[in-house]
Design a binder for these strands. Sequence first.
DNA 1: GTGGTCTAGACCACT
DNA 2: GTGGTCTAGACCACA
Lengths: 117, 117, 117, 117
Amino acid sequence: MTDWQEHEPIYHQLAQLVIEQIIRGSLTEGEAVPSVRQVAAQERINPLTVSRAYQMLADDGLLEKRRGVGMFVAPGARSATLAGERQRFLDHEWPQLLARIRLLGLNLEELMNGEAG
Amino acid sequence: MTDWQEHEPIYHQLAQLVIEQIIRGSLTEGEAVPSVRQVAAQERINPLTVSRAYQMLADDGLLEKRRGVGMFVAPGARSATLAGERQRFLDHEWPQLLARIRLLGLNLEELMNGEAG
Amino acid sequence: MTDWQEHEPIYHQLAQLVIEQIIRGSLTEGEAVPSVRQVAAQERINPLTVSRAYQMLADDGLLEKRRGVGMFVAPGARSATLAGERQRFLDHEWPQLLARIRLLGLNLEELMNGEAG
Amino acid sequence: MTDWQEHEPIYHQLAQLVIEQIIRGSLTEGEAVPSVRQVAAQERINPLTVSRAYQMLADDGLLEKRRGVGMFVAPGARSATLAGERQRFLDHEWPQLLARIRLLGLNLEELMNGEAG
DNA sequence: GTGGTCTAGACCACT
DNA sequence: GTGGTCTAGACCACA
Protein backbone atom coordinates (compact mmCIF):
# COMPACT_ATOMS: atom_id res chain seq x y z
CA MET A 1 0.00 0.00 0.00
CA THR A 2 1.48 3.24 -1.17
CA ASP A 3 0.99 6.32 0.96
CA TRP A 4 -0.52 8.99 -1.22
CA GLN A 5 0.36 12.65 -1.29
CA GLU A 6 -2.34 14.81 0.17
CA HIS A 7 -2.80 17.46 -2.45
CA GLU A 8 -2.48 15.58 -5.70
CA PRO A 9 -5.16 13.28 -7.10
CA ILE A 10 -4.49 9.62 -6.42
CA TYR A 11 -5.13 8.66 -10.02
CA HIS A 12 -2.46 11.10 -11.09
CA GLN A 13 0.07 9.79 -8.62
CA LEU A 14 -0.74 6.26 -9.66
CA ALA A 15 -0.17 7.05 -13.32
CA GLN A 16 3.14 8.58 -12.39
CA LEU A 17 4.11 5.42 -10.53
CA VAL A 18 3.41 3.32 -13.60
CA ILE A 19 5.44 5.70 -15.73
CA GLU A 20 8.35 5.38 -13.33
CA GLN A 21 8.12 1.61 -13.45
CA ILE A 22 8.18 1.68 -17.22
CA ILE A 23 11.20 3.96 -17.29
CA ARG A 24 12.96 1.95 -14.63
CA GLY A 25 12.21 -1.24 -16.51
CA SER A 26 10.27 -3.03 -13.80
CA LEU A 27 7.41 -2.99 -16.27
CA THR A 28 8.63 -4.06 -19.69
CA GLU A 29 7.01 -3.45 -23.04
CA GLY A 30 4.36 -5.99 -23.90
CA GLU A 31 3.99 -6.97 -20.28
CA ALA A 32 0.56 -6.96 -18.66
CA VAL A 33 -0.11 -4.28 -16.13
CA PRO A 34 -1.79 -5.50 -12.92
CA SER A 35 -5.56 -5.48 -13.37
CA VAL A 36 -7.70 -2.61 -12.18
CA ARG A 37 -9.32 -4.75 -9.51
CA GLN A 38 -6.00 -6.13 -8.38
CA VAL A 39 -4.47 -2.71 -7.88
CA ALA A 40 -7.64 -1.44 -6.27
CA ALA A 41 -7.60 -4.26 -3.74
CA GLN A 42 -3.89 -4.03 -3.05
CA GLU A 43 -3.83 -0.26 -2.65
CA ARG A 44 -7.21 -0.21 -0.95
CA ILE A 45 -8.59 2.38 -3.33
CA ASN A 46 -11.62 2.43 -5.55
CA PRO A 47 -11.42 0.58 -8.89
CA LEU A 48 -12.68 3.67 -10.63
CA THR A 49 -9.69 5.63 -9.39
CA VAL A 50 -7.32 3.03 -10.76
CA SER A 51 -9.25 2.98 -13.98
CA ARG A 52 -8.83 6.70 -14.42
CA ALA A 53 -5.07 6.41 -14.04
CA TYR A 54 -4.87 3.59 -16.59
CA GLN A 55 -7.18 5.48 -18.91
CA MET A 56 -4.86 8.47 -18.89
CA LEU A 57 -1.91 6.28 -19.76
CA ALA A 58 -3.84 4.55 -22.53
CA ASP A 59 -4.83 7.95 -23.94
CA ASP A 60 -1.16 8.86 -24.03
CA GLY A 61 -0.40 5.66 -25.89
CA LEU A 62 1.64 4.19 -23.05
CA LEU A 63 -0.76 1.34 -22.37
CA GLU A 64 -2.64 -0.83 -24.85
CA LYS A 65 -6.03 -2.27 -24.12
CA ARG A 66 -6.95 -5.75 -25.22
CA ARG A 67 -10.63 -6.07 -24.67
CA GLY A 68 -11.74 -8.64 -22.19
CA VAL A 69 -8.11 -9.47 -21.54
CA GLY A 70 -6.41 -6.60 -19.83
CA MET A 71 -4.00 -3.73 -20.36
CA PHE A 72 -0.42 -3.99 -21.53
CA VAL A 73 2.61 -1.76 -21.77
CA ALA A 74 2.61 -0.53 -25.35
CA PRO A 75 5.56 -1.24 -27.63
CA GLY A 76 7.85 1.76 -27.68
CA ALA A 77 6.39 3.04 -24.43
CA ARG A 78 9.68 3.29 -22.62
CA SER A 79 11.56 5.47 -25.03
CA ALA A 80 8.47 7.54 -25.79
CA THR A 81 7.88 8.15 -22.10
CA LEU A 82 11.45 8.93 -21.33
CA ALA A 83 11.72 11.37 -24.21
CA GLY A 84 8.39 12.99 -23.35
CA GLU A 85 9.15 13.38 -19.68
CA ARG A 86 12.59 14.76 -20.39
CA GLN A 87 11.19 17.23 -22.84
CA ARG A 88 8.54 18.39 -20.42
CA PHE A 89 11.04 18.72 -17.63
CA LEU A 90 13.63 20.64 -19.59
CA ASP A 91 11.14 22.91 -21.28
CA HIS A 92 8.73 23.69 -18.49
CA GLU A 93 9.92 22.67 -15.07
CA TRP A 94 13.62 23.29 -15.09
CA PRO A 95 13.67 26.91 -16.26
CA GLN A 96 11.33 27.94 -13.46
CA LEU A 97 13.24 25.82 -11.03
CA LEU A 98 16.59 27.24 -12.00
CA ALA A 99 15.29 30.77 -11.60
CA ARG A 100 14.06 29.82 -8.16
CA ILE A 101 17.33 28.20 -7.17
CA ARG A 102 19.23 31.30 -8.24
CA LEU A 103 16.78 33.56 -6.47
CA LEU A 104 17.38 31.64 -3.28
CA GLY A 105 21.12 31.90 -3.83
CA LEU A 106 21.68 28.16 -3.72
CA ASN A 107 24.71 26.57 -5.32
CA LEU A 108 25.57 23.10 -6.51
CA GLU A 109 27.27 22.10 -3.28
CA GLU A 110 24.32 22.96 -1.12
CA LEU A 111 22.06 21.06 -3.46
CA MET A 112 24.25 17.96 -3.37
CA ASN A 113 24.51 18.00 0.41
CA GLY A 114 21.13 16.42 0.95
CA GLU A 115 21.97 13.23 -0.90
CA ALA A 116 24.48 12.02 1.65
CA GLY A 117 21.86 11.77 4.44
CA MET B 1 -1.74 39.67 -16.43
CA THR B 2 0.11 36.63 -15.20
CA ASP B 3 -0.85 33.26 -16.62
CA TRP B 4 -1.62 31.01 -13.73
CA GLN B 5 -0.58 27.42 -13.32
CA GLU B 6 -3.37 24.95 -13.72
CA HIS B 7 -3.05 22.85 -10.63
CA GLU B 8 -2.09 25.29 -7.91
CA PRO B 9 -4.43 27.75 -6.20
CA ILE B 10 -4.15 31.24 -7.59
CA TYR B 11 -3.87 32.78 -4.15
CA HIS B 12 -0.90 30.57 -3.49
CA GLN B 13 0.84 31.49 -6.69
CA LEU B 14 0.14 35.13 -6.01
CA ALA B 15 1.68 34.95 -2.55
CA GLN B 16 4.70 33.28 -4.09
CA LEU B 17 5.05 36.16 -6.53
CA VAL B 18 5.09 38.67 -3.71
CA ILE B 19 7.67 36.62 -1.86
CA GLU B 20 9.89 36.59 -4.91
CA GLN B 21 9.57 40.33 -5.26
CA ILE B 22 10.57 40.79 -1.65
CA ILE B 23 13.60 38.56 -2.04
CA ARG B 24 14.56 40.19 -5.32
CA GLY B 25 14.22 43.58 -3.69
CA SER B 26 11.64 44.98 -6.09
CA LEU B 27 9.49 45.26 -2.98
CA THR B 28 11.53 46.74 -0.15
CA GLU B 29 10.81 46.61 3.56
CA GLY B 30 8.38 49.29 4.64
CA GLU B 31 7.10 49.74 1.10
CA ALA B 32 3.39 49.47 0.40
CA VAL B 33 2.20 46.51 -1.63
CA PRO B 34 -0.34 47.30 -4.38
CA SER B 35 -3.90 47.38 -3.11
CA VAL B 36 -6.17 44.39 -3.32
CA ARG B 37 -8.42 46.15 -5.80
CA GLN B 38 -5.53 47.20 -7.95
CA VAL B 39 -4.11 43.72 -8.21
CA ALA B 40 -7.53 42.20 -8.75
CA ALA B 41 -8.25 44.57 -11.62
CA GLN B 42 -4.84 44.17 -13.18
CA GLU B 43 -4.77 40.39 -12.95
CA ARG B 44 -8.47 40.00 -13.66
CA ILE B 45 -9.03 37.83 -10.66
CA ASN B 46 -11.43 37.97 -7.76
CA PRO B 47 -10.51 40.50 -5.03
CA LEU B 48 -11.17 37.80 -2.46
CA THR B 49 -8.40 35.75 -4.03
CA VAL B 50 -5.93 38.59 -3.71
CA SER B 51 -7.07 39.23 -0.18
CA ARG B 52 -6.45 35.63 0.73
CA ALA B 53 -2.92 35.75 -0.61
CA TYR B 54 -2.13 38.91 1.35
CA GLN B 55 -3.69 37.42 4.45
CA MET B 56 -1.42 34.40 4.22
CA LEU B 57 1.61 36.66 3.98
CA ALA B 58 0.39 38.76 6.89
CA ASP B 59 -0.08 35.59 8.95
CA ASP B 60 3.52 34.67 8.23
CA GLY B 61 4.61 38.11 9.39
CA LEU B 62 5.83 39.19 5.97
CA LEU B 63 3.22 41.89 5.51
CA GLU B 64 1.82 44.40 7.99
CA LYS B 65 -1.68 45.78 7.87
CA ARG B 66 -2.24 49.43 8.71
CA ARG B 67 -5.94 49.95 9.01
CA GLY B 68 -7.40 52.34 6.52
CA VAL B 69 -4.06 52.74 4.83
CA GLY B 70 -2.98 49.48 3.27
CA MET B 71 -0.47 46.68 3.62
CA PHE B 72 3.28 47.07 3.85
CA VAL B 73 6.31 44.84 3.68
CA ALA B 74 7.26 44.12 7.28
CA PRO B 75 10.67 45.05 8.62
CA GLY B 76 12.96 42.04 8.50
CA ALA B 77 10.77 40.38 5.92
CA ARG B 78 13.50 39.83 3.38
CA SER B 79 15.94 37.86 5.49
CA ALA B 80 13.16 35.91 7.20
CA THR B 81 11.64 34.99 3.86
CA LEU B 82 14.91 34.04 2.30
CA ALA B 83 15.83 31.74 5.15
CA GLY B 84 12.40 30.19 5.28
CA GLU B 85 12.17 29.58 1.58
CA ARG B 86 15.61 28.03 1.42
CA GLN B 87 14.76 25.69 4.24
CA ARG B 88 11.47 24.65 2.71
CA PHE B 89 13.00 24.15 -0.68
CA LEU B 90 15.90 22.03 0.46
CA ASP B 91 13.84 19.94 2.86
CA HIS B 92 10.66 19.32 0.91
CA GLU B 93 10.95 20.09 -2.77
CA TRP B 94 14.50 19.32 -3.70
CA PRO B 95 14.72 15.67 -2.65
CA GLN B 96 11.81 14.72 -4.91
CA LEU B 97 13.20 16.78 -7.73
CA LEU B 98 16.60 15.21 -7.45
CA ALA B 99 15.07 11.73 -7.63
CA ARG B 100 13.19 12.79 -10.73
CA ILE B 101 16.29 14.20 -12.36
CA ARG B 102 18.12 10.96 -11.69
CA LEU B 103 15.23 8.89 -13.04
CA LEU B 104 15.30 10.86 -16.26
CA GLY B 105 19.02 10.27 -16.53
CA LEU B 106 19.85 13.95 -16.49
CA ASN B 107 23.08 15.40 -15.18
CA LEU B 108 22.69 17.98 -12.44
CA GLU B 109 25.93 19.83 -13.15
CA GLU B 110 25.04 20.24 -16.78
CA LEU B 111 21.57 21.40 -15.84
CA MET B 112 22.99 24.03 -13.50
CA ASN B 113 25.29 25.28 -16.23
CA GLY B 114 22.51 25.36 -18.79
CA GLU B 115 24.22 22.74 -20.90
CA ALA B 116 21.35 20.27 -20.94
CA GLY B 117 19.09 19.34 -23.85
CA MET C 1 -34.54 15.59 -21.01
CA THR C 2 -32.75 14.03 -23.92
CA ASP C 3 -33.36 10.37 -24.65
CA TRP C 4 -30.01 8.67 -24.78
CA GLN C 5 -28.87 6.04 -27.23
CA GLU C 6 -28.58 2.65 -25.66
CA HIS C 7 -25.17 1.53 -26.78
CA GLU C 8 -23.08 4.67 -26.53
CA PRO C 9 -21.88 6.21 -23.27
CA ILE C 10 -24.00 9.11 -22.12
CA TYR C 11 -20.99 11.31 -21.52
CA HIS C 12 -19.95 10.78 -25.09
CA GLN C 13 -23.36 11.64 -26.47
CA LEU C 14 -23.50 14.68 -24.25
CA ALA C 15 -20.14 15.92 -25.51
CA GLN C 16 -21.39 15.44 -29.04
CA LEU C 17 -24.47 17.52 -28.26
CA VAL C 18 -22.34 20.38 -27.00
CA ILE C 19 -20.18 20.15 -30.11
CA GLU C 20 -23.26 20.37 -32.29
CA GLN C 21 -24.48 23.40 -30.37
CA ILE C 22 -21.13 25.09 -30.87
CA ILE C 23 -21.14 24.36 -34.59
CA ARG C 24 -24.76 25.39 -34.93
CA GLY C 25 -24.04 28.60 -33.02
CA SER C 26 -26.51 28.09 -30.20
CA LEU C 27 -23.46 28.17 -27.95
CA THR C 28 -21.21 31.05 -28.90
CA GLU C 29 -17.54 31.50 -28.11
CA GLY C 30 -16.93 32.99 -24.70
CA GLU C 31 -20.37 32.00 -23.53
CA ALA C 32 -20.75 30.03 -20.33
CA VAL C 33 -21.81 26.44 -20.69
CA PRO C 34 -24.58 25.35 -18.29
CA SER C 35 -23.06 24.16 -15.02
CA VAL C 36 -22.44 20.52 -14.32
CA ARG C 37 -25.09 20.43 -11.63
CA GLN C 38 -27.57 22.24 -13.81
CA VAL C 39 -27.23 19.79 -16.67
CA ALA C 40 -27.24 16.87 -14.28
CA ALA C 41 -30.53 18.02 -12.74
CA GLN C 42 -32.13 18.86 -16.05
CA GLU C 43 -31.14 15.63 -17.77
CA ARG C 44 -31.60 13.58 -14.63
CA ILE C 45 -28.16 12.08 -14.85
CA ASN C 46 -25.27 11.94 -12.44
CA PRO C 47 -23.07 15.06 -12.15
CA LEU C 48 -20.03 12.89 -12.64
CA THR C 49 -21.31 11.81 -16.03
CA VAL C 50 -21.75 15.43 -17.10
CA SER C 51 -18.35 16.23 -15.70
CA ARG C 52 -16.73 13.57 -17.83
CA ALA C 53 -18.28 15.01 -20.97
CA TYR C 54 -17.11 18.52 -20.15
CA GLN C 55 -13.70 17.21 -19.22
CA MET C 56 -13.33 15.63 -22.64
CA LEU C 57 -14.24 18.89 -24.32
CA ALA C 58 -11.84 20.85 -22.13
CA ASP C 59 -9.07 18.37 -22.97
CA ASP C 60 -9.75 19.01 -26.65
CA GLY C 61 -9.51 22.74 -26.02
CA LEU C 62 -13.15 23.37 -26.86
CA LEU C 63 -14.07 24.49 -23.36
CA GLU C 64 -12.13 26.71 -20.99
CA LYS C 65 -12.26 26.31 -17.25
CA ARG C 66 -12.26 29.30 -14.98
CA ARG C 67 -11.75 27.98 -11.51
CA GLY C 68 -14.56 28.54 -9.10
CA VAL C 69 -16.52 30.23 -11.86
CA GLY C 70 -17.50 27.72 -14.49
CA MET C 71 -16.71 26.52 -17.97
CA PHE C 72 -16.86 28.56 -21.14
CA VAL C 73 -16.74 27.96 -24.85
CA ALA C 74 -13.13 28.60 -25.81
CA PRO C 75 -12.24 31.29 -28.34
CA GLY C 76 -11.81 29.73 -31.73
CA ALA C 77 -13.76 26.67 -30.68
CA ARG C 78 -16.25 26.82 -33.50
CA SER C 79 -13.88 26.82 -36.42
CA ALA C 80 -11.54 24.37 -34.72
CA THR C 81 -14.38 21.97 -34.08
CA LEU C 82 -15.83 22.28 -37.51
CA ALA C 83 -12.48 21.72 -39.16
CA GLY C 84 -11.65 18.82 -36.88
CA GLU C 85 -14.96 17.07 -37.30
CA ARG C 86 -14.86 17.50 -41.06
CA GLN C 87 -11.35 16.13 -41.20
CA ARG C 88 -12.27 13.13 -39.13
CA PHE C 89 -15.35 12.47 -41.18
CA LEU C 90 -13.67 12.75 -44.54
CA ASP C 91 -10.60 10.78 -43.54
CA HIS C 92 -12.06 8.00 -41.45
CA GLU C 93 -15.81 7.68 -41.69
CA TRP C 94 -16.65 8.52 -45.25
CA PRO C 95 -14.29 6.12 -47.06
CA GLN C 96 -15.71 3.14 -45.17
CA LEU C 97 -19.19 4.44 -45.63
CA LEU C 98 -18.79 4.93 -49.34
CA ALA C 99 -17.46 1.41 -49.73
CA ARG C 100 -20.47 0.15 -47.85
CA ILE C 101 -22.91 2.18 -49.93
CA ARG C 102 -21.39 0.82 -53.12
CA LEU C 103 -21.40 -2.71 -51.77
CA LEU C 104 -25.11 -2.39 -51.09
CA GLY C 105 -25.63 -1.00 -54.58
CA LEU C 106 -27.26 2.19 -53.36
CA ASN C 107 -27.32 5.29 -55.50
CA LEU C 108 -27.80 8.98 -54.82
CA GLU C 109 -31.52 8.93 -55.52
CA GLU C 110 -32.22 6.16 -53.06
CA LEU C 111 -30.20 7.99 -50.45
CA MET C 112 -32.06 11.25 -50.98
CA ASN C 113 -35.47 9.58 -50.82
CA GLY C 114 -35.59 9.42 -47.08
CA GLU C 115 -35.39 13.14 -46.55
CA ALA C 116 -38.83 13.86 -47.97
CA GLY C 117 -40.59 11.78 -45.28
CA MET D 1 -4.93 -9.77 -39.21
CA THR D 2 -7.66 -7.20 -39.39
CA ASP D 3 -7.36 -4.14 -37.18
CA TRP D 4 -10.52 -3.91 -35.17
CA GLN D 5 -12.49 -0.79 -34.44
CA GLU D 6 -12.22 0.41 -30.89
CA HIS D 7 -15.82 0.80 -29.88
CA GLU D 8 -17.60 -2.09 -31.56
CA PRO D 9 -17.52 -5.72 -30.43
CA ILE D 10 -15.09 -7.82 -32.40
CA TYR D 11 -17.64 -10.56 -32.96
CA HIS D 12 -19.92 -7.99 -34.50
CA GLN D 13 -17.27 -6.65 -36.81
CA LEU D 14 -16.32 -10.18 -37.76
CA ALA D 15 -19.91 -11.06 -38.65
CA GLN D 16 -20.04 -7.92 -40.74
CA LEU D 17 -16.92 -9.01 -42.61
CA VAL D 18 -18.52 -12.34 -43.47
CA ILE D 19 -21.67 -10.58 -44.62
CA GLU D 20 -19.62 -8.37 -46.90
CA GLN D 21 -17.86 -11.38 -48.35
CA ILE D 22 -21.18 -13.04 -49.06
CA ILE D 23 -22.54 -9.95 -50.78
CA ARG D 24 -19.34 -9.45 -52.71
CA GLY D 25 -19.40 -13.07 -53.77
CA SER D 26 -16.05 -14.02 -52.36
CA LEU D 27 -18.04 -16.46 -50.25
CA THR D 28 -20.61 -18.23 -52.42
CA GLU D 29 -23.70 -20.09 -51.29
CA GLY D 30 -22.96 -23.63 -50.26
CA GLU D 31 -19.30 -22.82 -49.70
CA ALA D 32 -17.68 -23.61 -46.36
CA VAL D 33 -16.61 -20.70 -44.20
CA PRO D 34 -13.15 -21.00 -42.62
CA SER D 35 -13.21 -22.92 -39.36
CA VAL D 36 -13.44 -21.20 -36.02
CA ARG D 37 -9.93 -22.30 -35.09
CA GLN D 38 -8.51 -21.16 -38.38
CA VAL D 39 -9.98 -17.68 -38.09
CA ALA D 40 -9.05 -17.42 -34.43
CA ALA D 41 -5.44 -18.28 -35.17
CA GLN D 42 -5.20 -16.04 -38.20
CA GLU D 43 -6.83 -13.04 -36.54
CA ARG D 44 -5.25 -13.71 -33.16
CA ILE D 45 -8.54 -13.50 -31.35
CA ASN D 46 -10.33 -15.80 -28.98
CA PRO D 47 -12.08 -18.79 -30.63
CA LEU D 48 -15.13 -18.00 -28.54
CA THR D 49 -15.34 -14.63 -30.25
CA VAL D 50 -15.30 -16.20 -33.69
CA SER D 51 -17.84 -18.73 -32.57
CA ARG D 52 -20.13 -16.01 -31.39
CA ALA D 53 -19.96 -14.24 -34.73
CA TYR D 54 -20.76 -17.42 -36.61
CA GLN D 55 -23.56 -18.18 -34.22
CA MET D 56 -25.15 -14.80 -34.90
CA LEU D 57 -25.00 -15.44 -38.63
CA ALA D 58 -26.45 -18.91 -38.17
CA ASP D 59 -29.27 -17.46 -36.08
CA ASP D 60 -30.05 -15.10 -38.93
CA GLY D 61 -30.13 -18.04 -41.33
CA LEU D 62 -27.09 -16.92 -43.27
CA LEU D 63 -24.92 -19.85 -42.23
CA GLU D 64 -25.79 -23.51 -41.84
CA LYS D 65 -24.14 -25.85 -39.38
CA ARG D 66 -23.36 -29.41 -40.43
CA ARG D 67 -22.34 -31.29 -37.34
CA GLY D 68 -18.84 -32.63 -37.41
CA VAL D 69 -18.19 -30.98 -40.74
CA GLY D 70 -18.32 -27.21 -40.41
CA MET D 71 -20.41 -24.20 -41.32
CA PHE D 72 -21.57 -23.28 -44.80
CA VAL D 73 -23.13 -20.30 -46.48
CA ALA D 74 -26.86 -21.01 -46.61
CA PRO D 75 -28.72 -21.15 -49.91
CA GLY D 76 -30.42 -17.85 -50.59
CA ALA D 77 -28.09 -16.10 -48.18
CA ARG D 78 -26.85 -13.52 -50.65
CA SER D 79 -30.16 -11.98 -51.68
CA ALA D 80 -31.55 -12.18 -48.14
CA THR D 81 -28.48 -10.45 -46.74
CA LEU D 82 -28.42 -7.79 -49.37
CA ALA D 83 -32.06 -6.88 -48.84
CA GLY D 84 -31.73 -6.92 -45.05
CA GLU D 85 -28.61 -4.81 -45.00
CA ARG D 86 -30.06 -2.23 -47.36
CA GLN D 87 -33.15 -1.96 -45.25
CA ARG D 88 -31.21 -1.59 -42.04
CA PHE D 89 -28.84 0.94 -43.52
CA LEU D 90 -31.49 3.18 -45.02
CA ASP D 91 -33.75 3.05 -41.98
CA HIS D 92 -31.32 3.30 -39.10
CA GLU D 93 -27.89 4.45 -40.10
CA TRP D 94 -28.38 6.79 -43.01
CA PRO D 95 -30.73 9.36 -41.45
CA GLN D 96 -28.24 10.14 -38.70
CA LEU D 97 -25.40 10.26 -41.15
CA LEU D 98 -27.22 12.62 -43.42
CA ALA D 99 -27.91 14.98 -40.52
CA ARG D 100 -24.24 14.86 -39.66
CA ILE D 101 -23.18 15.60 -43.22
CA ARG D 102 -25.52 18.57 -43.29
CA LEU D 103 -24.25 19.83 -39.95
CA LEU D 104 -20.71 19.75 -41.25
CA GLY D 105 -21.78 21.69 -44.29
CA LEU D 106 -20.70 18.98 -46.70
CA ASN D 107 -22.27 18.36 -50.07
CA LEU D 108 -23.61 14.85 -50.60
CA GLU D 109 -23.26 14.84 -54.36
CA GLU D 110 -19.64 15.86 -54.17
CA LEU D 111 -19.01 13.24 -51.52
CA MET D 112 -20.52 10.53 -53.71
CA ASN D 113 -18.32 11.60 -56.60
CA GLY D 114 -15.24 11.70 -54.46
CA GLU D 115 -14.83 15.43 -55.01
CA ALA D 116 -14.90 16.42 -51.36
CA GLY D 117 -12.08 17.73 -49.22
C1' DG E 1 -21.96 29.34 -6.43
C1' DT E 2 -18.30 26.48 -9.38
C1' DG E 3 -15.73 22.02 -10.71
C1' DG E 4 -12.81 17.91 -8.74
C1' DT E 5 -12.07 13.72 -6.25
C1' DC E 6 -13.22 9.61 -4.01
C1' DT E 7 -16.16 5.82 -2.36
C1' DA E 8 -19.23 1.80 -2.46
C1' DG E 9 -21.77 -0.76 -5.15
C1' DA E 10 -24.41 -2.22 -9.14
C1' DC E 11 -24.69 -3.78 -13.85
C1' DC E 12 -22.94 -4.57 -18.52
C1' DA E 13 -20.24 -6.27 -22.56
C1' DC E 14 -16.27 -8.65 -24.11
C1' DT E 15 -13.05 -12.70 -24.11
C1' DG F 1 -11.56 -13.27 -15.69
C1' DT F 2 -11.11 -8.24 -18.04
C1' DG F 3 -12.36 -3.08 -18.40
C1' DG F 4 -16.45 0.41 -18.88
C1' DT F 5 -20.39 2.92 -17.33
C1' DC F 6 -23.51 4.82 -14.17
C1' DT F 7 -25.49 6.06 -9.69
C1' DA F 8 -25.96 8.23 -5.11
C1' DG F 9 -23.77 10.60 -2.01
C1' DA F 10 -19.96 12.69 0.57
C1' DC F 11 -16.27 16.00 0.99
C1' DC F 12 -13.00 19.46 -0.69
C1' DA F 13 -10.84 23.66 -2.77
C1' DC F 14 -11.58 27.72 -5.29
C1' DA F 15 -13.84 32.20 -6.19
